[in-house]
Design a protein around this nucleic acid. Structure first.
Lengths: 238, 238
DNA sequence: CCAAAAGTGTTCGCGGTACACCCATGC
DNA sequence: GCATGGGTGTACCGCGAACACTTTTGG
């Protein structure tokens, strides 16, 4: 066995090889008639120049969700969004260079809050429609698929759709949201009946402005009431 | 900066500190009238002697699910079970010694296949009822809670309950399974009507033996038919 | 013959679904 | 006044829920 001196400061020696641990974030936003995902351009190899999910390595003493929020803020400026762990991707060869295990998160954002119009390459970030994604780095396409599947499943029994809308919204906007996510048309009267019967979406006395037709009433989601009902066993369902 | 010589073989040097990555498995089994979880006694510090989930570190070139299956086989002898990724636990201080990120899996086993009766400390493994778990190492109690919550949620819209039963089962057994998992009683006639209407549980010409009352007919789950239906958009629901 | 669990139908009410027209507003 | 979406009610049907007695078998 060769001689052994301690490693220089800033280097770390382990008995066993360790994978690197990263987080990646699928940020979904609702546009007029489709879902979009927020991508950034990679500035470094591997996959330099390719589109990728915002993400990065987890800090030494940093929680996973904290790392995801930090990366989101650093790379896209997004803060304070719905964020939930999605799945952990760890196939040995998902990164060509070395073993990286990635804990994926998905976030739901109000597209209006982050006007990086598709062209804007400002911070190298942009919204891309799910229906025509560019070539993506690593296994990021699969991660996006998983996020969309999760959203599709969860939107029906949890009130997460509201995370994609502004605080005040019309019932037509809400209906479009479900139609886009579930990929099927819904009957207007039945949808309204159903939503209003839950008594969790309550009307405000405000109306739409700046539309060139009859202005629709604005509603808001009553999260406090929802939280209270959940404690008593209530189950949201669309 | 101090002098630097290469580390001895078997040691690994990284530019940045890296967490260790482990997998932990929550194996759930259905007993006569409750769910049980498979625990092992830890032979090493930290938490030496405490009960813990089977699990261990992920190999250098090993996939996450592969690691989970390997640990299960090594520590409990279980192979070939339903196994699904659950959640990744990564709070910085969940292990008192060093940073460990754990990718948790949950498995559903036919208790009858693994007769480690509660006393048997054979390989230091034993089944413990969820209602009175011993003190557990690390955050393993929280991991078990997450697994049970997942099972409770998923059993209603995916046919995973069958993983807990032998290949041939009576409708009463199936009903008990749902009652135990969902923690509420079900009406016998309505349950049978509902299950049989799905046309996925089909009767065999076998009957129970060794019971001291009228023998019940045995049924089996038609997984092939289920897989076919799913491809056409069918959704299982109880 | 007794204990124990298997097996079997009907009624009722609610909630999902299908479906079409008038209203308000901006231009 | 016309184009554009906003807003509203009713009839039907299927499914979930409630509910009790007869049958079979082993001991």
């Amino acid at each position: 066995m060769s001689a052994w001196t301690p490693p220089p400061p800033g280097r770390h020696v382990y008995e066993y090889p360790r994978p690197a641990v990263a987080v990646d974030c699928v940020v979904l936003g609702l546009d007029t008639d489709d879902l979009k995902v927020l991508l950034i351009r990679r500035g470094v190899d591997p996959w330099k120049g390719a589109w990728a999910l915002p993400g990065g390595f987890v800090g030494e003493r940093e929680g996973l969700e904290a790392a995801a929020r930090r990366e989101l803020a650093e790379e896209t400026g997004i803060g304070e969004v719905f964020l939930e762990q999605l799945y952990t991707f760890g196939e040995p060869d998902r990164d060509p260079r070395h073993r990286v295990i990635s804990v994926a998160y998905y976030a739901l954002a109000k597209l209006s809050d982050f006007k990086l119009t598709a062209g804007t390459d400002a911070a190298g970030a942009g919204w891309h429609p799910l229906s025509k994604l560019p070539a993506l780095a690593f296994d990021h396409a699969a991660i996006i698929d998983a996020a969309v599947a999760r959203l599709r499943g969860k939107v029906r029994y949890a009130p997460i759709g509201f995370e994609l809308l502004p605080p005040r919204f019309t019932l037509t906007q809400l209906q479009r949201l479900y139609e886009i996510i579930l990929e099927r048309e819904l009957d207007k009267r039945n949808f309204r009946k159903k939503i209003l019967s839950l008594d969790l979406v309550i009307e405000t006395d405000e109306k739409q402005t700046g539309v060139r037709h009859r202005a629709a009433r604005l509603y808001r989601f009553d999260r406090k009431k929802y939280d209270r009902l959940v404690k008593h066993g209530f189950e949201f369902a669309i």
